[in-house]
Structure formats: C-alpha cells, structure tokens
Write a protein that binds this DNA or RNA. Structure first.
Lengths: 228, 228
DNA sequence: GAGGATGAAATTGTCAACAATTAGCGAGAC
DNA sequence: GTCTCGCTAATTGTTGACAATTTCATCCTC
C-alpha cells in the first residue's frame, strides 16, 4: 500500500508532507492518530530523516502536533483552538480584502462576477449547503488572498489557516447550510473590492468571517461533550 | 569559541536555535551570511541532525531562508518584505487590541499606567528616540498580544513577526526618533483598551502600526539603492 | 484490592558515513 | 577574447546504527 506520489521532482520530505497532508485532510488519518516515525518510514520506504522533516513541515502548517520525546499526532483542535483560528482569520482576511480593494482594476468586477455565477449554480445544485465546505467558498477567499499581493499574508492563509479549517471539517462534516447567505455576503464583499472601497470590504469580510464562526460554534454546541 | 548556552534542559536543536537567533538578532550574523551545516555542527560540537532541525525552526520564524540543495542563509528582508510584514502586523495587532479590550478588567488601567510611566522615563532619558527600538515598545505590544488570550495570535506576533522586525533593525539601526509620538499613541491605545472599547482600540492600533511603517519607509528611502 | 515502584519494550533524539546535487573553476574551441 | 563544456571540490540530502527518554505492564507493598 504505497501511497507515495509518482512525482519524482523535489525533495523526498516534501513529497511525504504532501501525501500525509492529503491523508489527514481527507480524513484517512483522523485527529489524534499517532504518526510513528518508523511506521511512516517503512510505509514510504524511506529513512526516518525525511519523515522527521515532513512532520516538521506539517507541524508548521498546524495540522500535526509534535511533543518532544513523545512523538507526532494528527492535531486535535479544541473549541478554543477553533475560536482562536477564526479570530486570526477575521483579522487576516479583513486585511486581505482591504488590500485587494486597493489593488482592484477594471477587470476585477467581471472576474468576481464570473466566479460568483459559478458558485451560485453550485449552491443551486446542492441547496442543503455544500457550498461552504466545497471548493467554492475556498476559491473565493483564495482569490482575495492572492489579490492582496502579500506573500506573508498568503502563506498564513493558504498555508496554515486553511488547512486547519479543513481539519476542523474532518471531524464535524457538513457545515450548516449557510450556502445561500454566504454567497450573498460574498457578492457584497466582491462589490466593495471592485469599487476599490477598502474600508467597506474589510468591514464586510470581518463580519462575514464572524458570521461563519457563529454558525460553526452553534453546530459545535450541538454534540456537546464530544471531544474537548 | 563555544557560544552554546549553559542551560542543559530541552532538546539540543532548541538550544542551537536559541543561540543562533541571538547571534542573528544581535547582528553578529548579518543578513545574507551563509549558515553552513558542517560549520555550525562543529562550532556547537554536535551532529548535523540537530543543526538541520534548528535551521528549520529559524526558518519558521522567518529569520533564516533555506533553499533546497543550496543551504541556509540569514534572511535579507527586501522593502517589499518589510511592507508585507507591516501590513500583516497591522491586521494582527489591531485584532489583538480589540481582543484585549474585550478582556479588560478593573486592574487593566493601572497596569498600563505603570508600564507607560516607566516608558515615559525611558523616552526622557533618551530623547533621540531609543524608545522605539528598545524593550519599551516591544513590551507594550507584547502585553497587548498576551492580553488577547489567543495562542495562535501570540505565536504569530511574538514568534514570527517580532523577530523579523528585529531583523529589519539590524540593518537599519536606530529607527527615527518617533519615541515621544509613539508613546502618546500608546497611551491612547491603552485608554481605549482599559475602557473596553474594542472598536477604537483596534482602529488606533492599526493606525499606530501604519504610522510606524510610514516612518520606517521614509528612513529606508534615505539610503536608496543600498540593498534591494 | 488499590497505589506506587520497578523493569522491559518501544519510540524518539543523536550521531557519523554514504550518495546526490550544486557551484565554481579551468581548459578548450570558436 | 569570449563562450561553452566538463571536471573537481564542497555542500546538502539520505541512510542506518547507537543512545536516551518515555511509556506501559508487572510486581510488590500497604
């Protein structure tokens, strides 16, 4: 059962990290699962050196916790972790929206319109709210993060916060059906960005993230007691 | 010349990272300096394994750049990097100020008053503006970051952004004498936090960081052409 | 029977040697 | 004289073995 990628370019450690990330975010490796170095090493037919490097990479992304002299495990996010995540996300995505607005040009409005039209059809096809967890929502936020033209901001969002959000949804699958509402909020944010209105774009984005957190928190409260 | 710490607790890699961080942030190792693994290994009398781990740690903190198959160097921050840094910092510290305000209690005002009184005397002792680069400014922002009670936010600020800011000041020593003005802004921010006024605290903090960036950018423009 | 101390197995941390890639240098051809 | 090709030296990437720490099970004591 060799799950190793066929791509041979790049460092071995990076391929391992890629494969492990897929396993974790797809739910094959559940939160709390032990990631023994020797087990991973013989599974991928490499030495423990690259395995350690890969685990460090995933630890940076926040989806693996390493405790010294004890080992690595798939990270389990507590509710406090989730709250902290959404607080930081609100700040960073708000900034991204502001920067995107300041960098908007003539084509921005059309590009957002095309993206959101596609998302609208996805929401129509899955009215029960698949939008929020699917590629649609992530796409929208990623486009804005890239528009900000800030490498550090993009790394934090795409490289750390988004993987952790995906990890959250491994446990609590099918986030509540906020699809239609979220899409509406997306449209307003896109308008503000296309208008070059940084102030409003940032405000709406922060509020949008806060709404998303409120919905998630309500859902977390439903199965109370399960996993601190 | 063994610069290794006397503290024997903890992992070897973490001690190395600590010592190297000191060397970098104190200016003993200047930006762009090569960090060869064998050289570091024999300097600290350890193997290359912990050295690699330590370099990865410092790479996470953003003060070392690692290019595969080529090696590690002390990071050189371009002006674009500095801009990105301050944009992210404004967002995160603004959020920290808002959260701190929401967590303020009866003792908050007194604690800030004591802190800022001490800073005022430091500014008076060094009117040319040592405050901004000294422990004073960093203290103020650290206190707020801790008040936010958000581990992720604290890690980003204290663990990554602040070391990079220190690295910026290694090259361009003695940031402009904004000490008095910065102290005044700090007072207003502290007041808003003590009042529990999250909205104003966040606004003032974002503006404060933006002012700090404007001052730094002006100074960077003076010696133009030196170091892209 | 419950709690704590002891010991063995397993796992992580560290080390030194080997393999592969890269960068620099010099020789040769155009 | 300049450009290109190839070689050498140095450095990083990887490997497998050894050392130290932790954890779990077992046994003894109270």
């Amino acid at each position: 059962m060799s799950t190793i990628s066929e791509t041979s370019r790049g460092l071995v450690a990076e391929r391992l990290a890629e494969d492990l990330r897929d396993d974790i975010l797809s739910g094959r490796l559940q939160p709390g699962a032990r990631l023994g170095e020797v087990a991973l090493a013989e599974r991928f037919s490499v030495s423990r050196g690259p395995v350690r490097a890969a685990l460090n990479l995933l630890s940076e992304a926040g989806i693996v916790t390493i405790v010294p002299n004890s080992g690595a495990r798939v990270r389990e996010l507590s509710r406090a972790d989730a709250r902290a995540l959404y607080e930081v996300r609100a700040a960073l995505e708000g900034e991204a929206a502001m920067l995107a607005a300041s960098r908007a040009n003539g084509e921005t409005a059309a590009r957002f319109a095309a993206l959101l039209d596609q998302h609208a059809s996805e929401v129509a096809a899955h009215p029960e709210g698949a939008y929020l967890q699917g590629a649609g929502d992530r796409d929208f936020h990623l486009v804005i993060a890239r528009m900000a033209e800030n490498p550090l901001l993009l790394r934090y969002l795409a490289g750390e916060l988004y993987p952790q959000l995906s990890l959250l949804r491994v446990k609590h699958r099918n986030v509540t059906g906020r699809g239609a509402k979220a899409l509406h909020e997306h449209k307003r944010i896109a308008e503000a960005i296309a208008d070059g209105d940084a102030e409003v774009a940032g405000l709406l984005m922060r509020r949008h993230i806060r709404n998303s957190w409120t919905a998630l928190e309500a859902q977390l409260s439903e199965h109370v007691g399960e996993g601190e």
